[in-house]
């Protein structure tokens, strides 16, 4: 699998940064409520994109919430993200999936490929275990990887035109 390396943006994309800044500003009960709201608003990948059993190629490694991620290409080299979280206890995974979709879908593939995994500690602060952090970080990495592949694929197509 080709990727764009480990480069990350100095700042997160604007919509994502804005949401993270709101989370930063909240006290703990408010932050928890906002994350629960994210989780409640999560919508699973539509059947037009994927059906169960979901293909293993889309499973997020190390994620104990059994998260899956898909990325389709939109107009103007943009990306649209989709997620599934199979574990009913995967509240944090659903909250993260909702945030990633809401703030990154519609952005250029190149920009999404360079989001920083620092999203996870900013969103959930430090009160997550290694196992949970691994899974959530892997979701971000999976999004980066899919966007990177799409970006490289688009670039290759252009170079051959």
């Amino acid at each position: 699998m080709r990727t764009m390396g480990e480069a990350t943006l100095d700042k997160q994309p604007e919509k994502l940064e804005s949401a993270l800044s709101v989370l930063d500003s909240l006290d703990e009960p408010e932050r928890v409520q906002m994350l629960l709201d994210f989780s409640d608003h999560f919508r699973e990948v539509p059947e037009s994109i994927a059906r169960r059993p979901f293909p293993e190629a889309h499973r997020v490694p190390y994620c104990e919430s059994d998260a899956y991620v898909w990325a389709t290409r939109g107009p103007g080299e943009t990306v649209k993200l989709y997620f599934a979280v199979e574990n009913p206890s995967g509240i944090s995974a659903r909250a993260l999936a909702y945030l990633l979709d809401r703030t990154l879908s519609g952005l250029k593939t190149e920009e999404v490929a360079r989001i920083s995994p620092e999203i996870v500690p900013r969103m959930f602060r430090q009160n997550i275990s290694m196992g949970k952090g691994m899974g959530l970080t892997a979701m971000v990495q999976a999004v980066r990887s899919l966007a990177s592949q799409q970006h490289l694929s688009t670039r290759d197509t252009k170079e051959h035109e």
Binding site: V32, Q33, L35, S89, N127, I128, S129, K132
Partner: peptide, 22 residues
């Protein structure tokens, strides 16, 4: 729980929460 969001997302009626990190 491992996931600190689980308790606020729904718990046994009357149950209290102990967050291992805090």
């Amino acid at each position: 729980n491992e996931d600190a969001l689980l308790y606020p997302s729904g718990h046994i009626p009357g149950a209290v929460h102990v967050d291992w990190t805090v």
